[in-house]
Amino acid sequence: MFNGNGNGLERVRLSGLSKNFAAGREKTTAFRLLHDIVKATDPAPLHARRVVAIEAFSMYTGEVLGLIGENGAGKTTLLKLIAGLYAPSAGSIQREGKVVYFAGLGIGMIQDLTVRENVYLYGAIYGISRSRLESDFEDMLEWAELTDFADAPLRHLSTGMKTRLAFAIATRVEADVLLLDEAFSAGDQRFQNKCDAFVWGRRGGSSAVLVATHNLAFVRRYCTRAIWLHHGLMREEGEPDRVVDSYLDYSKT
């Protein structure tokens, strides 16, 4: 559906996008829900808080985009909008291909299942083919240093072990659009290097990658483009060093 921009194929296109959340959202009862449906009222717009508003933005294959900004700037909301988990309040999002979103490592894993069962469940959640999971099973466990734990319940593993396992599986994901929400920025230095290498390997590849992060050094080193989100607006966008510098200048004030 999309044209290239010289770098790669356009995978995501946002236009006139905005997302509002109802402020002070209350628990709704069935009666109230029915009342709102019958009266055709939507309580949200009355006390809406705008979280994200982006006029135009696109993602292309081969790109690794760094999304930076303060806490509450709307980074996660933007990722969830692109992922299709949130519906936009206005505007449109067009996506092409398979979109995978990692809110964190290990989401969807179940403590009472064994490592082996979790590999297949977690892999299935993120659309990794069964044959890939089977053929790579030994490699994944070896990499995560869990060879002796294949049939142990997940709850017997340390946090670090679980993160390594989740990462080993996650790196098998084949996505056209890959959205990472601080996901790969946990763990010790050795783990961090692996994560960085994974992202580095995606540069110039067939997927478009967007990483929301507070790790500015990561953005400078590995990203091909950076976006600074400020109070839901795109404050600056472009060459990573320049965007990170502006953000740092702002942060000092």
Binding site: K98, D112, Y120, A124, I125, R130
Partner: peptide, 24 residues
Amino acid sequence: MNFRDQFILLRELTATHHKLRDQS
């Protein structure tokens, strides 16, 4: 997610409910 992947995920989730119940 294509149909095949959806089928596999459905199977995994269904099996998970059973494994968890049989353990509990």
